[in-house]
């Protein structure tokens, strides 16, 4: 069951990461790309958590805590400067 869970979650997370990268690539606006990169960060954290749970180790636990602590700073910064650059071509 352990291998089955690992394979299922690996396939699902790979598809999810591929979709998020597609949204980053084609996203019509900068904010869509920021949102998709947030989702990609969440998928990386999910992969770390699944690895820990399946293999029963805690090597990545504090990396996960740090990720939840400071993961929002990037999107907050980008959103702040997007709202300052109004009127210019940020609809690309």
């Amino acid at each position: 069951m352990k291998d089955a869970v690992l394979i299922i979650t690996a396939v699902v997370l790979t598809l999810a990461a591929a979709g998020a990268i597609v949204r980053i690539a084609v996203g019509p606006s900068l904010l869509d790309r920021v949102l998709a990169s947030d989702v990609l960060l969440g998928i990386v954290g999910a992969a770390l958590a699944i690895d820990m749970a399946v293999n029963r180790h805690l090597n990545n636990l504090f990396l996960l805590v740090a990720l939840t602590l400071i993961g929002f700073i990037g999107s907050v910064t980008v959103a702040r400067f997007v709202s300052d650059r109004r009127g210019q071509a940020n609809d690309s």
Partner: peptide, 25 residues
Amino acid sequence: TAVFLVLGALMSLTATIGLLRFPDL
């Protein structure tokens, strides 16, 4: 645990499907 792991992974897939299919930000 297996159910939780699969459901948690499916949440990521759900978010990606939503990202790809929903019309606006």
